[in-house]
């Protein structure tokens, strides 16, 4: 299933945050959206997933999601959004409980995603007992449980320290290698974008417009930090963003 954004514009009261966004998300690709803070990256993600309605333009789902898919557009949030009163297992179970699944089928799915994210031994643990990285792994496992057609990842690693971030990126690369999932990945971190994105969309400062789309052809599993080509890409992206970021930084919040 592909996603098509056509001429998306959006404002909050008088403040226009997005303007004329046209974008395709192709199946099996990770599309990273980067941009200076306040450029409407997260808003765009909420529009894609139907948590908000765009003032103008539409988001189209092109093609049917696979039959086993329970929740075609599934988010992974920056703050994990785990229910603190449910164990790891029950947090995943939460998103399956409204679907007509037998308890056995549900248990199978849970066991499966826990195994795939290497969380099996943390099944009965409450979120407060987990580190940030582990919490985000649980959130990813939860997202995988509903077999999404597209994962909408809203700065999933921003709340983590840099070492944990590295580890999680490795896990995501691994996962993609195995499952070829489709994702829209919002981040403000360029090296994250370059590590994970098949295509990187650079947004301008508010109101956010697409100012550049950069494709990276290097396979994900070959993108280590020492790769000079990637360093070059980061440098190019930074040049694109530098002036926008500086201008955005000097803007008054919400006027």
């Amino acid at each position: 299933m592909n996603l098509q954004m056509q001429n998306i514009g959006h404002s909050y009261e008088d403040l226009q945050v997005l303007d004329g966004i046209d974008l395709h998300i192709d199946e099996g690709q990770i599309v990273c959206i980067v941009g200076p803070s306040g450029c409407g990256k997260s808003t765009l993600l909420r529009l894609i997933g139907g948590l908000e309605v765009a003032d103008s333009g539409t988001v189209l789902m092109d093609g049917e999601p696979p039959e086993s898919c329970l929740n075609p557009l599934t988010y992974v949030f920056q703050d994990f959004a785990l229910l603190p009163w449910r164990t790891v297992e029950k947090n995943i179970s939460l998103v399956l409980e409204d679907h007509p699944l037998s308890p056995a089928a549900r248990a199978t799915i849970i066991d499966d995603v826990l195994r795939r994210t290497h969380l099996s031994e943390f099944k009965d643990v409450f979120p407060r007992q987990l580190s940030g990285g582990m919490k985000q792994r649980v959130a990813i496992a939860r997202a995988l449980a509903v077999k999404p057609a597209v994962m909408l990842m809203d700065e999933p690693l921003s709340a983590l320290d840099s070492q944990t971030r590295e580890l999680l990126m490795e896990d995501l690369v691994d996962l993609w290698g195995r499952e070829r999932f489709t994702a829209v990945y919002v981040t403000h971190n360029l090296s994250e974008a370059v590590r994970l994105g098949h295509r990187i969309v650079v947004l301008s400062r508010r109101p956010g417009r697409i100012c550049e789309v950069v494709d990276i052809d290097t396979p994900l599993d070959q993108r280590d930090t020492a790769n000079p080509e990637l360093a070059q890409k980061v440098k190019i992206l930074w040049q694109l963003l530098h002036d926008e970021a500086r201008a955005a930084d000097r803007e008054l919040a919400n006027v």
């Binding site: 599934t74 949030f77 939460l94 409204d98």
Partner: peptide
């Protein structure tokens, strides 16, 4: 919002 994003009733 998380609940809504997973289509919970």
């Amino acid at each position: 919002r998380m609940g809504q994003s997973f289509n919970l009733s």
